[in-house]
Simulated scan of single mutants.
Amino acid sequence: QSCIAFFCHLKDEVEQHRAGQAQLLKQKEPLQASEVLYKDNVLYFDDNKKWRERFVVVRADYSLELHDSQESYTKGTPARHKHLPTGGTVLTSEEKYTAVVDKAFPDPNGSKEEPSVPVVAVPGPLPVYLSLPYRRDSYFCFQQEEKRARFVSILNDCIRHQNQDYLKSMECEVQAFLKAIHFYRQEKGHYESWDMLVGTDCQVGLLVSILLTSMLSVDRDLGVSC
């Protein structure tokens, strides 16, 4: 599929195909990746297990940057942390976050006793938990409901775009990967191209991860490098 997609890309370049007139409304032009969608000071649970105020910046590539301060950001200092929240889940209560953690890491002894202390001691009334598969979770805290609601909204946008924006890419590598997924699902009796997106963002991300692992395993067996 990689070779086919690459040659189709070359064919389009040589023949200079122009897109036909679409009957549906066109999407807006995407923003430049460097454009800022959100910025504000937020309490963040840092690597040293202490709560510190960080200047959070979300750019148009839907990455989450954490800077030491607004001053360091203005000076152009690189971000202390940069998160790509692909497959993430945003939770706003300790009870829901604890339930997610207990489901991911069940007690091998089968004990269902409530924990005596919280996972993270939150210094304010409005926590935000960002649960990330296969990566370290992130914790934020707010004093005002309006600020938390705005942050949760932009965080959910980041997750949605990180999960599904690759479908819009016209790069031949992406098109080859999506075509391979399409053929794989046809073998399993699913013939609609949108069928692979049925389910939650986590289920879709898990499907893509499984298919990618299967493709890499086949490539290794055939001696093909990706």
Rank of each mutant, 00 (worst) to 15 (best):
S214Y: 00
F151S: 04
V198R: 08
H161R: 13
V218L: 13
L66W: 15
T77H: 01
D157C: 07
Q16A: 13
P123K: 07
S169F: 12
A121C: 09
R135E: 14
E171M: 15
V224W: 02
K103A: 07
H161G: 06
R136I: 09
R185V: 04
D61P: 06
G76P: 06
K103V: 01
F45R: 08
S69E: 00
C202D: 15
R52I: 14
L211V: 09
Y38C: 01
L222S: 08
F151D: 07
L91P: 03
R136K: 10
A33M: 03
T77Q: 06
C141N: 08
I210Q: 03
L24C: 14
L91S: 11
R54P: 02
Y166K: 05
G87D: 14
A176N: 10
L178I: 07
F55A: 00
R185S: 08
S217W: 09
K82H: 05
S2I: 02
G199L: 01
E35I: 09
H190G: 01
T77V: 00
P118L: 12
F177T: 05
N48G: 06
V224H: 00
K96Q: 12
W51I: 03
V100Q: 09
K147G: 06
V56M: 15
T98C: 05
F142M: 08
S34M: 09
D137T: 07
E35S: 10
R135Y: 00
L91I: 00
T77R: 01
H182I: 04
H83D: 05
N156I: 02
T98R: 14
I154D: 14
H17P: 07
P123N: 11
S116C: 13
S93A: 11
P118T: 07
A104D: 07
H67Y: 06
Y129Q: 08
N48S: 08
K26S: 13
E29T: 12
